[in-house]
Design a protein around this nucleic acid. Structure first.
Length: 111
DNA sequence: CCCTTGACTATCT
DNA sequence: GAGATAGCCAAGG
């Protein structure tokens, strides 16, 4: 394993581990938050290399769609994990929760 | 080295 | 909104 991967993975995993249930972050946001701007694509690799004990399902694309292709097992698994913690998905897009933990009615009606 | 590969993004049509 | 397109950047062949 390269030196880069070692440091990168640790920082990325650290950020992802701190995403609260019901909340999500995009690959780019995670990368920036970890101190690696422009490394969104690397985040996915760091996650695939992880122990799988972290909330990897809370990391989605910047347009709020899941990164996997609809219909795949991975897609189904991720959406299940998200739904299990109260997050809802409408028209393929993850609806963010408000700070009080409830779904914004505006977000719902808007689509 | 050069080329291809992504669990990506921002910016046009 | 759906495509296409051009950046992005470490890894692996």
């Amino acid at each position: 394993m390269s030196d880069f991967q070692n440091k990168f993975d640790l920082k990325i995993w650290d950020v992802v581990a701190k995403i609260k249930a019901g909340r999500v972050m995009s690959y780019g946001e995670v990368a920036r938050s970890a101190g690696f701007p422009r490394h969104a694509r690397m985040v996915s690799k760091a996650l695939s290399r992880s122990n799988n004990l972290l909330p990897w399902h809370r990391v989605i694309r910047s347009d709020r769609r899941l990164a996997f292709n609809k219909g795949t097992e991975a897609y189904k698994k991720q959406s299940d994990l998200l739904k299990n913690e109260g997050t809802i998905i409408v028209k393929g897009k993850v609806i963010p929760l408000k700070s009080d933990g409830k779904v914004s009615i505006d977000e719902l009606l808007w689509r």
